[in-house]
Design a binder for these strands. Structure first.
Lengths: 231, 231
DNA sequence: TGTAATAATTGATATATATCAACATTAAAA
DNA sequence: TTTTAATGTTGATATATATCAATTATTACA
């Protein structure tokens, strides 16, 4: 954290963005009082796998990578998290620890919500709890997809999947600049950065994409889908 | 399904086993009325990935494998499910479809609970909902572990992990007979059956385990842990 | 019980992927 | 700007793992 971290000019939560919209207006006022905002610079750690989790975090602006650390030096980037998303992970109501790390890949702002206050809301508003279950289940299904891709697809397919994810889910454009490094892209695709670079070049040579430094453009989305599905 | 499938002599649910214990006595009576029991022979499909999910299932007896199908011919066995465990998967409150398949690996009996009745309980009993969230989060954390092992460990480590899982979590003994085939064990470890067989032989030769047909014995559990952690 | 079908095993080989080392480029800092 | 550090790129090589084909053991079943 740095000097930008402050809750002096605290920003209100945007309740339209996520399951928090299922809170009653009174509950929303109540939770807005106990939350506070923190800013992070690109590259800063928002929280760290294994650390205790006194807060549920809702990203307010910027992008962050959510990743598993394996104790050695290889990471698995599970997803990129966007504004409005709840990042607390499955730690709550189990061991109250974070089970993944989150690092800002752009300058970020995040709301911190006390986990006990959050729990109280779940205990008093069953509808909210139900929506939370739906939200968690959704994340769970996505993890199954990831597991299938990472274990049963070859490198080309895995990298195609990563590019499609970035284009469709994160940058919402066939053309995007990213602050992700080649290593990050490799960590999203479960391969070494050397392999990621080689396959990017292959894709470039075959005209499916173009990329230079941090600028990417997907020319043939169907081609990528085909590589993902058929090898 | 076969002639054993019947709800004529319906068995009552055992509420001590899982999150259902957080239901009130009245709710337990209510849910016991709408549930019914079904029996499956070894090898029978309990439910199938992609199928609609009108029921949450609680295994009553026997063991079943929970696995992802990738559309081709390779499966990922996520876990073995035991009596008392809720098997409904993350389909509920998302798309009401099953996101994995479940097949009996022994003769099984299962309780079927109407998913709408289950949902109603969640809406009326927030405590139950909270425990359900904890339960789902727990499953989520385990999936992270699996993801780490399957993507960052070599075959020896992955197979060691599978053997430890069977011994510690399923059969609760260093010595166990299993109804899992070599292919199942391979599917749990994300490798081909040929590779699984070769590594089992390696483990046998080095004296860490012995196995013949369906009988396994782990002689050096610490050795397996070491292989899992260090290669 | 004998026979067919299924599962387990082994070996030879091909392929996918990581590793290592060198070098180039870009970004950061003084 | 110059220098340093970090990141990206390429090629050569080693290794892990899958595939294929053949053989044997086990189970189901007529």
């Amino acid at each position: 954290m740095n000097t930008k971290n402050t809750n002096i000019d605290n920003q209100p939560l945007d309740f339209s963005l996520n399951v928090l919209k299922f809170l009653t207006p009174e509950e929303q006022v109540q939770i807005d009082k106990v939350q506070y905002s923190v800013s992070f610079n690109k590259g800063e750690t928002i929280f760290k796998q294994g650390a205790p989790m006194p807060y549920v975090i809702v990203l307010k602006s910027g992008l962050a990578k959510v990743f598993l650390e394996d104790g050695k030096n290889r990471n698995i980037v599970l997803r990129i998290t966007k504004p409005g998303e709840i990042v607390g992970g499955p730690g709550f109501f189990t061991d109250y620890k974070h089970h993944f790390s989150v690092t800002a890949i752009e300058d970020c702002a995040a709301h911190y919500i006390d986990v006990e206050a959050f729990k109280k809301l779940l205990l008093h508003n069953a509808r909210f709890g139900l929506e939370m279950i739906a939200y968690l289940n959704n994340a769970h299904v996505k993890l199954y997809e990831k597991l299938k891709i990472l274990t049963h697809k070859h490198m080309n397919g895995r990298l195609a999947s990563t590019l499609l994810y970035l284009s469709n889910n994160i940058y919402n454009s066939e053309k995007f600049d990213t602050t992700l490094s080649r290593q990050d892209i490799a960590d999203m695709s479960s391969m070494t950065k050397e392999s990621a670079i080689r396959i990017l070049k292959e894709f470039k040579t075959s005209g499916i994409i173009s990329c230079q430094n941090n600028s990417f453009e997907i020319h043939d989305k169907y081609g990528l889908v085909n590589i993902l599905e058929n090898g």
